[in-house]
Measured scan of single mutants.
Amino acid sequence: KAKLLVLLYAFVATDADTICIGYHANNSTDTVDTILEKNVAVTHSVNLLEDSHNGKLCKLKGIAPLQLGKCNITGWLLGNPECDSLLPARSWSYIVETPNSENGACYPGDLIDYEELREQLSSVSSLERFEIFPKESSWPNHTFNGVTVSCSHRGKSSFYRNLLWLTKKGDSYPKLTNSYVNNKGKEVLVLWGVHHPSSSDEQQSLYSNGNAYVSVASSNYNRRFTPEIAARPKVRDQHGRMNYYWTLLEPGDTIIFEATGNLIAPWYAFALSRGFESGIITSNASMHECNTKCQTPQGAINSNLPFQNIHPVTIGECPKYVRSTKLRMVTGLRNIPSIQYRGLFGAIAGFIEGGWTGMIDGWYGYHHQNEQGSGYAADQKSTQNAINGITNKVNSVIEKMNTQFTAVGKEFNNLEKRMENLNKKVDDGFLDIWTYNAELLVLLENERTLDFHDLNVKNLYEKVKSQLKNNAKEIGNGCFEFYHKCDNECMESVRNGTYDYPKYSEESKLNR
Rank of each mutant, 00 (worst) to 15 (best):
L4I: 14
V6T: 11
V12G: 10
D15V: 12
A16I: 11
D17S: 03
T18G: 00
I19M: 12
C20T: 04
I21N: 11
G22V: 06
S28I: 03
S28W: 03
T29F: 02
D30P: 01
I35H: 00
V40N: 12
A41E: 00
V42E: 11
T43Q: 07
H44N: 09
S45F: 13
V46I: 14
E50Y: 11
D51V: 12
L57V: 03
C58I: 10
A64Y: 07
K70A: 08
I73F: 14
I73E: 00
T74W: 00
G75I: 02
W76T: 05
W76A: 03
W76M: 07
G79N: 06
P81Y: 04
D84Q: 13
L86K: 02
L87I: 14
P88H: 11
A89E: 12
S91W: 04
Y94R: 09
V96Q: 07
T98R: 12
T98D: 14
P99D: 07
S101M: 06
S101D: 00
E102V: 13
E102T: 08
E102R: 07
N103I: 03
P108E: 06
L111T: 13
Y114E: 04
E115V: 05
E116D: 11
V124H: 02
S126N: 07
F130Y: 15
E131G: 01
E136Q: 07
E136M: 12
S137R: 09
S138E: 02
S138G: 12
F144I: 08
T148W: 03
S152I: 13
H153Q: 13
S157P: 14
F159H: 10
F159T: 07
Y160Q: 09
K168V: 14
G170C: 02
Y173R: 01
P174E: 13
N178L: 07
N178C: 04
S179W: 13
V181W: 15
N183C: 00
N183K: 14
N183T: 14
K184D: 00
K184L: 14
K184W: 00
K184Q: 15
W192V: 10
G193P: 05
G193S: 06
V194F: 12
P197K: 05
S199I: 08
S199V: 08
S205V: 14
Y207M: 07
N209I: 15
A212Y: 02
A217Q: 05
A217W: 15
S218E: 03
R223A: 14
T226C: 10
A231E: 08
K234G: 01
Q238L: 09
H239Y: 06
M242H: 02
T247Q: 05
P251L: 01
P251I: 13
G252K: 09
G252L: 12
D253E: 15
D253A: 15
T254M: 05
T254K: 10
I256L: 10
G261A: 11
Y268D: 02
F270E: 12
F270L: 10
F270V: 02
A271Y: 09
A271D: 02
A271G: 07
L272Y: 01
S273I: 12
F276V: 13
F276K: 12
E277N: 13
T282I: 12
T282S: 14
